[in-house]
């Protein structure tokens, strides 16, 4: 019980201090809208193409929603030593880091529903398998958050965290089959796509929204879960190795 009081309050503090701030909320709204608009203009198609674009926009919204504040919630707090206060609390490191990332996961998942709500007003989404979309959104949010966390705990400065974060985030938009099929990528880039967790999350969304997944959904879920475990383990190892010296 005591541990969950701590967990809940760490999450609440981060939500209030970082995630639910106007600049971050507006980022969460503007970014998906801008991406949707950009692809409409680029493809020159009408509203009937929304189901094809929606999985990519959902995935991008989650990716940027989850990773936008981790450099602050983790790297900055480490830098100004307030993170030491958390490390001194009688909480297992695993639970502490889950509490520290749960705000990002929730914010990222909430971001996913911005394009979905917009799409509901513009097109017919009656064929969407929502029971697959919701776990997919959660898994993408967890995987993206843990990817951001693994970067945030590998560096010492906030600017390094942001730079490395962008180094991964922007290529993922093009490499993970969000808007273009992986098969349309040059042959030498395709193996890279399969090394990125978002590829599997986006594939689930494509399958759930318009039935065009390239891998079995069970495989997608298994691989993305494995990525979550791997990235979280790497992050914990780095905290032990670099922060508790």
């Amino acid at each position: 019980m005591k541990r969950w009081i701590a967990f809940w309050n760490i999450m609440l503090k981060d939500m209030r201090s970082y995630y639910l701030k106007p600049p971050n909320i507006s980022w969460g709204l503007i970014f998906p809208a801008a991406w949707t608009g950009m692809f409409f203009i680029k493809t020159g198609t009408g509203l009937e193409s929304i189901p094809e674009l929606l999985p990519g926009v959902i995935a991008v919204s989650i990716l940027f929603g989850t990773t936008s504040m981790l450099a602050v919630t983790v790297t900055f707090e480490k830098k100004n030593r307030s993170f030491e206060r958390l490390l001194l609390a009688p909480l297992p490191l695993e639970l502490l880091m889950l509490a520290k990332t749960s705000g990002a996961i929730l914010f990222g998942a909430a971001n996913a529903f911005v394009p979905i709500i917009l799409a509901v007003f513009l097109t017919d989404l009656s064929g969407v398998a929502w029971m697959i979309v919701i776990p997919a959104v959660i898994m993408i949010a967890i995987a993206s958050t843990f990817l951001g966390l693994s970067i945030a705990v590998s560096v010492s400065e906030v600017f390094e965290a942001q730079t490395f974060s962008n180094f991964f985030r922007f290529p993922m938009i093009f490499l993970c089959g969000l808007f273009f099929p992986i098969s349309s990528l040059p042959m030498f880039l395709r193996p890279l796509s399969y090394l990125l967790p978002l590829t599997y999350g986006a594939d689930i969304l494509h399958g759930a929204v318009h039935g065009k997944n390239i891998m079995p959904l069970a495989l997608d879920f298994t691989v993305i879960t494995a990525f979550c475990i791997l990235l979280f383990s790497i992050s914990l190892r780095n905290i032990h190795r670099r922060w508790i010296i």
Binding site: K2, R3, I5, A6, K13, S17, N80, R85, L86, A89
Partner: peptide, 22 residues
């Protein structure tokens, strides 16, 4: 090493919550 964005009262309440205080 407290949180600059929180008030004195909120800082203390947050620190207490880390030890499971209701």
């Amino acid at each position: 090493n407290l949180y600059p964005e929180l008030s004195g009262f909120d800082n203390l309440c947050f620190c207490a919550s880390l030890y499971g205080m209701k």
